[in-house]
Design a binder for these strands. Structure first.
Length: 569
RNA sequence: GCGCCCAUAGCUCAGUGGAUAGAGCAUCUGACUACGGAUCAGAAGGCCGGAGGUUCGAAUCCUCUUGGGCGCUCCA
């Protein structure tokens, strides 16, 4: 809707430029794109156009003079949309629009209902978004929580803008970490059975490792001691892996994140996909042997160094099945793949990008985003580095547990999700758990939810007072004349653009910020303007339409964030 | 040494080419006997890490520089 207004206005301006050139009042070889921006201040109108500033050089005229010529041309043929045009500052043309477009906006929101905010800029492009993908060697920590909230919302946003996106989790259930983890379980197993074994230095120290060992003893005793160590490790892995996977999945679901596809590295290996891509690379003469290993010539594609794909012991390095996995994503028909990675995977990301180029894929098809680290801050304000191996971490489950101590489970998830979503994912995040718990009650997410609940309460009260809403076409929206109403309506109209911008930039933190603004403008409106006024039934009807539009935008927005929109709190 | 991320109000962060740089928290002052005070109105708080450059116009783009974080394995 706001788009349409902009399009209309930019046509008017561009028409004016053309006719001014035709008259010879302005000399230009080329008309630049006409920008229209919503000014921050009401004094600057509804939409501002800096065209005269842009043209100053090529037209060899002062910006204000150019603006003057254009404004005269525009005013010569009055348009119902434009109330007046002012020239301001260095040469901005500020358009003040007639309120009718605001009323159109409300009608448009009413007609679209839950679809308001949805669009089709994606044209059905198929995208696989891979995120979390934590090693199956322990519970998910809060960094994974941040990735989970981010990826989940990103997929919501993409699907709302006409892309066909899915959530995918890659399970590294076949690499070297698995045996290292099994080794840690084994060490605890033997320790618990009284053997004096030293715990591996690079092992996993978490309590849960000991718990797993104890569970094995409880179920099957000491019988694994009879086995060869390598067989025992494999057996332990088989026992422990499903438990961890279940654990991770439960935590994610508790957090409201459901993956569409879980891909196991083992299944990629079983399907001989790594061999397949190695064959392709070999046929292109991109592989060579050196120092007993097989290398991929990444330097031929702009990589800073070549990388090993088969180690001298015959095992693959991480990248080999990973390449195969990404190749598989494209084979499954996805136009684009987006990966959300932790910041400690920078080198891996660069290598993978280059490797996919070597496999013949256009660079633009794989986009790797980084969800920056989360530092845990302790009571003394010191940063604590989280490490899964050292068992020094806060798990996603613990986070929700702790928040649940102060608020309901549903709100605990809301608080945690909002905490992760409200800041840019490229920024580091200091997570002060004690503060987060303390602040749970006064968390900014409640500000948004309260706005939604407050709107809903208006309708509840209306019902109690037997105030029935008239059909939209019988409501006279001209009653909405207050500046607080105009500001709120304008903000509501931005919603589709905000969602689109999140989809285009893959930066979703704009959405929480936008909803915060909507909530603030609504609260202001609510304090200033009485909705249910029995002395003014027509005004009441018009304001009910506005209130309902706020309800829709807040509801649709919160739903994209995966945060509940309560009707009462 | 090389690459990536970050630096904006006391604190946590938005703003990535437009007018007077914004919000939340914290601080201070106020608000209707009326739709939910989990709210609102207002005050105070800033050489946008620093220095050059591009531009009509820079927190934003380029170069250099300072400080912090993370990578640079035949680990994942």
């Amino acid at each position: 809707m706001l788009d349409e207004v902009k399009t209309q206005l930019s046509q008017i301006v561009s028409q004016a430029v053309k006719s001014v050139i035709a008259k010879g009042d302005l000399t230009l070889t080329e008309i630049p794109e006409i920008q229209l921006q919503a000014p921050k201040s009401d004094e600057h109108g509804d939409l501002a156009c800096p065209l005269a500033l842009v043209l100053a050089r090529s037209a060899k005229k002062a910006p204000r003079a150019i603006a003057q010529i254009l404004v005269e041309e525009i005013e010569a043929a009055p348009h119902p949309l434009i109330k007046r045009v002012e020239i301001a500052g260095p040469g901005f043309m500020n358009f003040f629009l007639s309120n009718s477009y605001l009323y159109e906006l409300l009608r448009s929101i009413q007609n679209q209902q839950a679809n308001f905010g949805r669009s089709n800029i994606g044209h059905g492009e198929r995208i696989v978004v891979e995120f979390v993908s934590a090693n199956p060697t322990g519970p998910l920590n809060i960094v994974s929580g941040r990735a989970a909230a981010t990826g989940d919302t990103l997929v919501n946003v993409l699907n709302a803008t006409g892309y066909d996106a899915i959530r995918e989790y890659y399970i590294n259930d076949a690499g070297g970490q698995t045996l290292r983890f099994a080794g840690s379980v084994d060490a605890r197993y033997r320790q618990l059975l009284g053997q004096a074994v030293e715990f591996p230095e690079d092992g996993y120290h978490g309590d849960y490792v000991t718990r797993f060992a104890q569970e094995i003893i409880d179920a099957e005793g000491a019988r694994y001691l009879q086995m060869e160590e390598s067989d025992r490790l494999k057996a332990f892995w088989q026992i422990v892996y499903p438990k961890i996977q279940r654990w991770q999945k439960d935590d994610l679901e508790r957090f409201g994140v459901y993956f569409d596809v879980w891909t196991r590295e083992q299944s990629i290996r079983d399907a001989k996909k790594p061999e397949e891509i190695l064959q392709t690379l070999k046929s292109r003469e991109l592989l060579y042997d050196a120092e007993g290993a097989t290398w991929l010539r990444l330097t031929a594609f702009g990589g800073d160094k070549d990388c090993v794909v088969i180690k001298s012991d015959g095992e693959y390095t991480y990248i080999t099945p990973d390449m195969a996995y990404h190749h598989d994503k494209f084979q499954r028909g996805f136009d684009r793949a987006i990966d959300l990675l932790g910041p400690d995977h920078h080198a891996q990301a660069g290598r993978l990008q280059t490797a996919m180029k070597a496999l013949g894929y256009d660079e633009s098809r794989l986009r790797i985003l980084f969800v920056q680290q989360v530092n845990l801050v302790n009571e003394r304000g010191e940063r604590v580095n989280m490490s899964k191996r050292k068992g020094q971490l806060i798990t996603l489950g613990e986070l929700i547990d702790q928040l649940t101590g102060t608020v309901d489970e549903r709100f605990a998830v809301d608080v945690a999700r909002y905490f992760f979503l409200m800041r840019s994912s490229s920024s580091h995040l200091d997570f002060d758990l004690s503060l987060a718990i303390k602040r749970a009650q006064e968390n900014p997410v409640f500000y948004l939810q309260y706005a939604h609940a407050r709107v809903c309460s208006i309708f509840t009260l209306a019902k109690q007072r037997n105030i029935r809403r008239l059909p939209l076409e019988e409501v006279n929206l001209e009653w909405l004349q207050e500046p607080e109403e105009a500001r709120l309506i304008k903000k509501l109209g931005e919603f589709p653009e905000v969602v689109q911008s999140c989809a285009r930039t893959l930066e979703i933190h704009h959405l929480p910020h936008y909803l915060q603004e909507v909530a603030a403008l609504f609260h202001t409106f609510y304090n200033k303007c009485r909705v249910l006024d029995e002395a003014a039934p027509e005004l009441t009807q018009a304001r009910l339409v506005l209130a309902d539009c706020v309800r829709l935008v807040m509801g649709n927005g919160l739903s994209l964030l995966g945060i509940s929109a309560p009707e009462t709190m």
